[in-house]
Simulated scan of single mutants.
Amino acid sequence: MADVVSAAAAALHRRAVVADTHNDLLCAVVARPVERWAEFFRERWLPQLREGGVRLQVLPVFIDDPYRPEGALRHTLRMIEAAHRIAEANKDAVALCRDGVEIDAALGEGRIALVLALESAPGIGDDTELLETLHRLGVRVASIAHFGRTLLADGSSEDATGSRLTRAGVAALAEMERLGMMFDLSHLGVGGVDHVLELATRPLIATHSSARALLDHHRNLGDTHLRAIAATGGVVCVNFFAPYLHATDHTIGRLVDHLEHVVSVVGVEHVGLGPDFVKEVLADTQPPCCEPVPGDDIPPDAYIPGLEGPAGLPLVTDELLRRGWAEDDVLAVLGANVHRLFRAELGRPA
């Protein structure tokens, strides 16, 4: 990126604690033979994370449709094991972190802090006691729905149902708050988001959601929800997936439009980055991983040129500075806000 970003942007980006709250790279890792997991991460993904300046990486555990429901828990455990093997075999470069103290230690040692997350948690069904089991294995963030319906809640593509959390979903939220596992609102349907906001007593996060005011897509969050998440002390991390940003203009400018809108609604201290690098993950996996949900009209290869993967993240810094953002505000959105939230909340029991 050194040849396409300004010297000022490159220097500022190097100073930042860049936090990416959604990269499905574990899908790519587990698509390899088990003996290749750690090596593949080091060869394929570590150089990109370093080039992009990523210092805090959330690793979602996303379970493909063919594994649901019977194989969901098995594949969940397999992906968690992959994360542990990545960390154990690459101790010089990364650390799997369970709380703010461990994150700060990793950053102080120049290592990338990895945080495990569940995306929609199909592996637990409605057995919410398994959240404690997964917490013991290092999971610290979780959502409870994807596009469709789970035993806990409905995803955003089911908004027409108007549904709220199930009884098990309410129990899951309470258990996560007890454990110090952050509740992720991304992918949750509108009724479910309303329900969580009524019940939540701890800060919330949206790991990869953009602004519905700029594009009326069910995966985006409206201004009322943005304000309510910020009111909990939480952070909204803007998704880079181009069809959630604009119907046709898939540019970094449209991404920054969403960042600026969310900042205008909730304040700069409640905004982060949740890239969801679809093109890079798809390039590393075989179907059915990360295919679009049937009936969803989003093309699987839509992406912002230059932001196909984490190596392009300095482009965001460059565009923010070009638009006149203050350096402290850029640092906040690049990752300081997520770092602060995780330091305060991650792994801290109620």
Rank of each mutant, 00 (worst) to 15 (best):
T224D: 15
A213H: 03
D216F: 06
E198Q: 14
H250M: 01
T232I: 07
L221I: 13
G233K: 10
F240A: 14
N220K: 03
A228P: 08
A230N: 07
G233A: 10
T207R: 09
E198D: 15
A213W: 02
H217S: 04
H218D: 11
G233H: 13
L214W: 12
H217I: 01
G222C: 10
V235A: 10
G234C: 11
L221R: 08
L204V: 11
N220P: 06
G253E: 14
R202P: 03
H250D: 10
T232R: 11
H246W: 03
T251M: 07
L204T: 10
A228N: 02
H217C: 03
A213R: 12
T248I: 00
L221Q: 11
A228E: 12
T224H: 12
T251R: 08
P203W: 08
L215D: 00
E198P: 00
R202Y: 02
I252L: 15
R202S: 08
T201M: 00
E198M: 07
R227Y: 03
S209P: 10
G222W: 07
D249S: 10
F241D: 00
L204Y: 08
L215W: 01
L204A: 10
L199P: 02
G253V: 03
D249H: 14
H218M: 01
L245M: 03
N239E: 06
I205N: 11
L221T: 06
L226M: 14
R227V: 13
L221G: 02
H208T: 06
H217Y: 09
V236A: 12
P243R: 04
I252P: 06
V238C: 11
R212H: 10
I205D: 09
A200E: 04
H208C: 06
A200S: 15
A213F: 01
A200L: 04
L221M: 15
A231E: 15
L245Q: 04
A247Q: 13
H208A: 00
T224L: 13
L255H: 10
V236R: 05
D216T: 02
Y244L: 14
T207A: 11
N239P: 07
C237R: 00
R219H: 08
L199F: 05
A242E: 07
P243K: 04
L214R: 14
T232K: 05
D223I: 13
P203F: 11
P243T: 05
A213K: 05
I252E: 03
A211I: 02
R219F: 05
T201Q: 14
P243M: 03
T248Y: 08
I205E: 01
D223L: 06
G222I: 03
Y244R: 06
L199E: 12
H217P: 04
A230K: 10
H225C: 00
P243H: 02
L226A: 13
D216A: 15
S210T: 13
L214S: 07
H225E: 11
H225D: 09
H218V: 15
R212A: 13
S210F: 07
N239L: 09
G234N: 09
G234L: 08
G234P: 11
F241E: 01
R202Q: 13
T201C: 00
L255G: 09
T224I: 11
A231R: 14
I205T: 04
T201W: 00
Y244M: 14
A206C: 12
A228S: 14
H217G: 00
H250I: 02
T201A: 13
L245E: 04
N220H: 02
H225V: 09
A231I: 01
S210E: 05
L215K: 15
A242V: 09
